[in-house]
Simulated scan of single mutants.
Amino acid sequence: MSPGQIAALIAAGAFVLLVLLLAIPLIKLGRTLDEATIAIRKAHENSTPLFTEANTTLTHVNTQLERVDGITANARAVTGNVSALTSLFTATLGGPLVKAAALSYGVSKAVRARRARKSGADTGAGRTRRGRGGRK
Rank of each mutant, 00 (worst) to 15 (best):
G133D: 01
G106R: 07
G131C: 04
T59D: 04
L85T: 11
A113N: 14
V107R: 03
A75R: 13
E35I: 14
E66K: 02
T92M: 04
N74Y: 03
S83D: 04
N55K: 10
L85C: 05
N81W: 05
G94V: 10
A75Y: 11
L29Y: 05
K136Q: 06
R135G: 09
T86N: 11
D69E: 03
A113L: 15
T48L: 14
V68H: 00
T56E: 10
R67M: 11
L58A: 07
G4F: 14
Y105M: 10
A101D: 04
R31P: 07
Y105R: 13
L20T: 00
A14C: 08
T128D: 06
E45L: 14
T57H: 01
M1A: 15
E45Y: 06
T32R: 08
R127Y: 04
A125M: 11
R31N: 13
A100F: 15
A73H: 01
R41P: 03
V19H: 04
I24W: 06
H44S: 12
Q64R: 03
L33G: 06
M1L: 15
I38A: 15
Q5A: 14
T123P: 00
T32W: 08
A84I: 01
K99G: 09
D69P: 00
L21T: 13
V98R: 08
L26K: 08
S47L: 15
A39E: 02
G134K: 00
G124S: 08
G4V: 13
G94I: 09
R129L: 14
L26Q: 10
A113V: 14
K28F: 12
A116S: 06
I40N: 07
T32M: 09
K99W: 07
V78S: 11
E45H: 06
A39R: 04
P3A: 11
Q64I: 03
T59K: 09
A73W: 00
F51G: 02
K99L: 13
A77N: 02
L26W: 11
G95E: 08
G106A: 13
L93Y: 10
T72W: 02
L65N: 01
A7Q: 15
R129W: 08
A102Q: 12
A110L: 13
L21I: 14
R135A: 13
G30W: 13
P3H: 14
M1T: 15
K42L: 12
V107K: 04
A39L: 08
L88E: 05
Y105N: 11
G126V: 06
D122E: 11
L20K: 09
R114Y: 09
L29V: 07
F51A: 02
I10G: 02
V61R: 00
